[in-house]
């Protein structure tokens, strides 16, 4: 009974907040009368920013079992955000809808192990996505829009293992590529002139790649916040 009452109160609260937000925001998010960027159909985006992902995973715990350590260096603490990059090509196919081919740099790591043979063993990897995104946008003005997008696609994780496997004292580099998948939910806003603009984009990417031979995976995605530049061109729809 207590739970039911509590639930009703919670629902009422949500309704009140929604109405309040609607009342405040509705005038400002009204759809622009003129088409966004005068109806141009192509766009390019390049973004830089930060990502927050899990430090420890089944994958990294296995690395630790085998003697590897994540040496963070002088300027980075465990749990701090890591560098992220994105690039995208956008095609506006309907007045409020576009599709994008987007790539994101996810986690990059470098782990070391005392080999007992001289040089440390090194294992490094970096993960990239290549996704198709569907974006729904609301042109508040012809030069300003807010949007939400959803994407899926493969994740490619390139890895390099440097170990000494022969008695000649030299390390050998072994390259591998793990192909996984990712799903992304992002939102953002863009302020632009006719051809060049600025955007802020944030969201979450789930990407269980790389995986090791035992099937242990590392979530290379996580939360993301990007700031970037955009360009628009092409004939109107």
């Amino acid at each position: 009974m207590g739970i039911a009452v509590d639930s009703v109160m919670h629902s009422k609260g949500l309704v009140m907040v929604t109405l309040l937000l609607g009342g405040v925001l509705a005038p400002s998010v009204a759809v622009a009368k003129e088409p966004f960027i005068e109806g141009q159909t192509w766009g390019l985006e390049v973004g830089l920013g930060l990502g927050w992902t899990e430090e420890s995973s089944a994958y990294t715990r296995t690395l630790e079992t085998f003697g590897f350590e994540d040496k963070y260096g002088c300027c980075w603490e465990p749990g701090a955000p890591r560098f992220r990059f994105s690039g995208a090509v956008e095609r506006i196919v309907l007045p409020y809808f576009s599709v994008l081919l987007q790539t994101n740099l996810l986690d990059r790591r470098k782990w070391y192990r005392d080999s007992g043979l001289g040089e440390d063993d090194v294992f490094a990897w970096s993960s990239w996505t290549l996704d198709v995104h569907a974006r729904a946008f609301l042109p508040v003005r012809k030069w300003f829009r807010v949007y939400a997008q959803f994407g899926v696609g493969p994740t490619f994780t390139g890895s390099r293992l440097y170990v000494q496997t022969t008695a000649d004292g030299k390390q050998t580099k072994y390259r591998e590529v793990d192909v996984g998948y990712n799903v992304a939910g992002l939102g953002g806003l863009e302020l632009t002139s006719k051809h060049a603009g600025f955007f802020v984009q944030g969201g979450y990417i789930y990407s269980p790649s790389p995986k090791n031979r035992f099937g242990d995976a590392h979530q290379s995605g996580g939360g993301i916040l990007l700031f970037g530049l955009s360009a628009h061109f092409g004939r109107p729809l």
């Binding site: 005392d114 080999s115 007992g116 043979l117 170990v163 000494q164 496997t165 022969t166 008695a167």
Partner: peptide, 13 residues
């Protein structure tokens, strides 16, 4: 500090 060579059984002849 290591007291044995090749602790990782990496070197095969």
């Amino acid at each position: 500090t290591d007291l044995v060579d090749d602790p990782g059984f990496q070197l095969w002849c």
